[in-house]
C-alpha cells in the first residue's frame, strides 16, 4: 500500500527476498492479482483518510476478511486494529511512547521467528489488549505487546523494514505461500 510513508523500504525488503511486488496508490491498482498486502509505516491518520478518499477502504477490508495475507507495521498495525479496518481483534494505543524523543531501538524474541529480532520504534504504538484468543501476541517489550498474529494477518509496532534483518518478512512470505 503506497499511499504515504515508508513503502519503498518494504519493497526493497521483498525484492531482496526474491518476491515480486507492485504499489497500490488508487482503487484501479487494487484489482491487480496479488498474494499478499503490506501496510507500511507512516502516519495512520493520513493513510486512513487516503484509503477512504481513494475508494480503497471497503475493498481492502473485504479482501483481508476473505483471507488475503497482510503484514502491518506501525501505522499499518494501527490500521488493522479495531478503530480502523478492524480486521484484527486488538486495541492499539497510538503514540504510546510519546513524541520523537521517546523513539528507541531494542531487540527481543518474536514467537515463531526467534531471538534478538531488532526492533525500531518510531513514535510507535503498542497493543493495549488483544480482544480474542485468535489474536495471538508474538512479542513483548517492557510488558507491552508489540507484535501479534491473527490467522493470515501479522502486525508489528516496530519497523522490520528499517533493519537489515529479513526474518519478519520471511515469516510473512511463508504465511503467504501456505
Amino acid at each position: 500500500m503506497a499511499l504515504q510513508g515508508a513503502f519503498i523500504e518494504h519493497e526493497a525488503m521483498l525484492r531482496r527476498l526474491g518476491a515480486e511486488c507492485f504499489e497500490v496508490r488508487q482503487a484501479s491498482d487494487w484489482g491487480r492479482p496479488k498474494d499478499g498486502l503490506i501496510l507500511p509505516g507512516g502516519e495512520s491518520t493520513v493513510q486512513r483518510r487516503l484509503l477512504e478518499d481513494l475508494g480503497l477502504f471497503g475493498a481492502v477490508r473485504r479482501d483481508i476478511l476473505a483471507g488475503l495475507p497482510v503484514l502491518g507495521t506501525c501505522a499499518g498495525m494501527i490500521l488493522l486494529s479495531q478503530t480502523h479496518l478492524a480486521t484484527m481483534h486488538m486495541r492499539v494505543r497510538r503514540n504510546a511512547y510519546g513524541r520523537q524523543l521517546g523513539s528507541f531501538r531494542t531487540g527481543n524474541r518474536v514467537e515463531g521467528i526467534g531471538g534478538d529480532v531488532p526492533m525500531t520504534f518510531i513514535r510507535a504504538p503498542y497493543i493495549e489488549e488483544t480482544l480474542s484468543p485468535e489474536c495471538r501476541p508474538l512479542a513483548r517489550v517492557d510488558g507491552h505487546i508489540v507484535a501479534a498474529r491473527e490467522g493470515k494477518q501479522m502486525a508489528t509496532a516496530f519497523h522490520p523494514e528499517l533493519d537489515g534483518d529479513t526474518r519478519i518478512h520471511e515469516a510473512f512470505l511463508q504465511l503467504v505461500s501456505e
Partner: peptide
C-alpha cells in the same frame, strides 16, 4: 532514529 522519522513522513 531521527533519519527514520523523516522516512515515515515520505509521500506526505
Amino acid at each position: 532514529l531521527n533519519r527514520q522519522l523523516a522516512q515515515m513522513l515520505k509521500g506526505g
